[in-house]
Design a protein around this nucleic acid. Structure first.
Length: 429
RNA sequence: GGAGAGGUGGCCGAGUGGUCGAAGGCGUCAGUCUCGAAAAUUGAUAUACAUUGCAAAAUGUAUCAUGGGUUCGAAUCCCAUCCUCUCCGCCA
């Protein structure tokens, strides 16, 4: 959500930004908002005047009643009732206008950073930088689900019976490795100075409406029957929701948090072989980082944050690259965003393991998250980024540490979380 | 889940229908005093929106958990919701 004052003063900038996102069908919203805004301000002025009249008259009634002048008081009463009648219809107008403005403002995309590449959709996202050699070994890397099964680490069949498709049981060393990755990610971020947080895994509807777009809600949210509760799709939902309508202290900025949570997503439909297995599932676990900072610092944090994820995967011997989200693929609330992708030596291409975004002050405007500063209050900037999500991140680790003999070399940094084991030997063929 | 008590400004806390955006205190900031500090003392001290203004600012409106309602008028009365605390029950 952008600032309506900004829109009022720079309608052309807003329109240009919409065009860059290939959303021409939204251009009309800008002029509509300007028109409605004018009407709304007029109605507010009218309303304020009427309310002032009522207040003045009402207090007179009080005085008259005290001094016992009943008739005069009754006289004024009827006057106020007239004012109230006018006010009633005016308030309806005020309400209508502000609702209509809000509905449109919610659909107008945030102003992108000038560095965002122009492109229509995800096919035009731009590779920024590679980290680590994308090695293709001279032996075949099996499908990740098959690797996991060779360790007796997966039972999808039972999960199908108990919970349905896209659920799984992880077992033994694989389950342990999955948690080791998350535990390492937690400690990795704590080391970077972030505060570890375990948030609620369910949130109320009013928070859902604040932190998810309608499209996200439709494709993602599981609802708890008979309760006003929804399972979170990412800890960002409860982490950012935490600050809704709140003031943070200026001296606490930047607020740097790293949160763990399971994530629940509906996401129906088939996505082909490579997205079966454990790639696209209804339930996974994620270590996330979120930052609240001053607006002028947000780009600096954005760059720090995706670099943390790159560093994290490099410490696990997984080659990665960053893929910058082009204008057409960038979600409306975001200023800039990139995916961190891990190398798949099996597919010989990169696949998404994380996503880093800065929303500027758009999210905090929508949720009303402000800092109390010495020079007055201001909206903070919000950012979020994946440290690692597993099983997806685990796939990258398994494929890149797969040995010719079918064993998995455990990256050094994970060994302490695996009871000192250096290698996993398959127990099943 | 049951029963009770409560939710007021940065914090504590008064206020049960009429100049109440809200006493008093604490805190914070500025001044006086002091070589400086403490103490004392004086003053200031919410936010949002709108209007006027180059601006400083002025004026108006709204906000006493949230949303409705009653009333000429609501922090105050009524209803619903949320939250906190105490006791009981249940439970990792």
């Amino acid at each position: 959500m952008i600032d309506i004052k900004f829109l009022r003063e720079n309608p052309d900038v807003v329109k240009e930004n919409i065009k860059k996102k290939f959303q021409e069908d939204k251009l009309h919203l800008v002029d509509e908002v300007i028109e409605l805004d004018e009407k709304n301000r007029k109605a507010k002025l009218q309303g304020d005047t009427l309310r002032n009249e009522r207040k003045t008259l009402s207090s007179k009634i009080g005085e008259l009643m005290k001094s016992g002048k009943k008739e005069e008081a009754e006289n004024i009463k009827s006057k106020v009732q007239e004012v109230n009648k006018k006010l009633e219809s005016n308030e309806e107008l005020e309400h209508k206008y502000s609702e209509e403005i809000k509905a449109r403002m919610m659909r107008i995309p945030n102003i992108m950073d000038p560095s965002v590449p122009i492109g229509k959709d995800d096919t035009e996202n731009v590779e920024n930088e590679k980290f680590g050699e994308p090695i293709v070994p001279d032996y075949e890397i099996p499908y990740h689900a098959d690797i996991i099964e060779s360790f007796g680490g997966l039972d999808k069949e039972s999960a199908g019976r108990t919970s349905g498709t896209a659920f799984y049981y992880l077992l033994g060393d694989i389950a342990r490795l999955h948690e080791a990755v998350l535990a390492y990610a937690r400690d990795f971020m704590i080391e970077k100075g972030f505060t570890y947080c375990i948030p609620p895994f369910m949130i109320r509807r009013d928070i859902v409406d604040g932190v998810m777009s309608f499209e996200e809600y439709e494709s993602m949210a599981y609802k708890i029957e008979g309760e006003d509760l929804y399972l979170i799709g990412t800890s960002e939902h409860s982490m950012i929701g935490r600050f809704k309508g709140q003031f943070v202290k200026e001296e606490d900025l930047p607020i740097t948090l790293t949160s763990y949570s399971p994530c629940f997503r509906k996401e129906g439909g088939s996505h082909g072989l490579e997205e079966r297995g454990l790639y696209r599932v209804h339930q996974f676990e994620k270590q996330e980082m979120i930052v609240l900072c001053k607006y002028e610092d947000h780009m600096e944090w954005y760059n720090k944050m995706w670099n943390y994820t790159v560093e994290f995967f490099r410490s696990l011997d997984v080659p990665v690259r960053t893929l910058e989200c082009c204008s057409g693929d960038l979600a409306d609330l975001k200023v800039k965003s990139c995916d961190v992708e891990a190398w798949s030596p099996r597919q010989q291409k990169y696949f998404e393991v994380g996503s880093c975004s800065t929303l500027g002050d758009a999210q905090s405007r929508r949720l009303n998250i402000k800092a109390k500063g010495k020079e007055g209050n201001y909206l903070v900037a919000t950012l979020n980024n994946t440290v690692v999500a597993s099983p997806r991140g685990l796939i990258g680790i398994l494929e890149n540490n797969y040995q010719k003999d079918g064993s998995i070399k455990i990256p050094k940094v994970l060994q302490p979380y695996m009871g000192g084991k250096e290698v996993l030997i398959p127990n099943k063929k």
